[in-house]
Each structure stands twice: as structure tokens, then as C-alpha cells.
Amino acid sequence: MSSSQMLKGILEGCLLAVISEGETYGYEMTEKLARYGFTMVSEGSIYPVLIRMQKDRLVASVLKESDLGPKRKYYRLTEEGLKALDEFIQRWNELSYSVDRLLHNKRFKSNDGKRGG
């Protein structure tokens, strides 16, 4: 799996988490993601993911007027979306726990090696 594919999978989970905080639209989502330090992907890359999520019925959308001009598309989580978010959190916890442990041991051994040399 390439790093961009991995990022897309994570991005989907993160978008589910952002939308679960309340009805929101594209630009606002990118701002929230940026606030959490999610700056490794371009802002526009959320849209292919949102289109897929909407097709999978994880999110629903509604157009609302905006003071700035064009209407904004607001997203909210569906029941399936909530389930998908729970699954993502569970999978992420398992994965990050395993990866953390593995990398922690690696770092430990590597530091030992440096000390020994």
C-alpha cells in the first residue's frame, strides 16, 4: 500500500470524526483538520473521499445559503456513518497500539546499539 493510499484511508476516518462533531461543509472541515495538524494532504483531497462516503451512504448532504455567494454543501453523519466511525476508531486503536509498541521496541534496540557502539 502506498503512503497516499494509507493516508486516504485515514482521511476517511478523520472526516467521519470531524463530521460527527456537527453538520459541517468542505472548507470548514479542512480548517478543522489543519487545526489538528492534518496538513500532509491538499485541501481538495477531501472531496473525492466525501463523494465516496456519500455513495456509501456514510454521510448525507444538504445545500444551504451562504453570505459569501455560492451555496454551501453541509454534511452530516448517517447511522452507517456512525457505525463506520466506531469501526475506524477500534481499528485505529488496535493498529496504533501495535505500531507504537513495535516502533518503541525498535527505538529502544536502536538506542542500545548506539550506546553499545
Binding site: Y27, E43, K73
Partner: peptide, 28 residues
């Protein structure tokens, strides 16, 4: 679907550019 996305991208560009971002910064 194209029309719907273009409208969404337009709204994003409007806010993004107002905040000083370029098309490249927004869409890669």
C-alpha cells in the same frame, strides 16, 4: 454530479482565496 462538485469547489475556492490561498495550495 459535475455541477454539484463544481459548485462545492467554487464555494471552497471563494473562502480559500479570501484567506490568501492559491488554487495550487487548495487543489494540489
Amino acid at each position: 454530479e459535475i455541477k454539484s462538485f463544481i459548485e462545492e469547489a467554487e464555494a471552497h475556492l471563494l473562502e480559500g482565496e479570501a484567506a490568501g490561498k492559491t488554487v495550487v495550495q487548495i487543489f494540489g
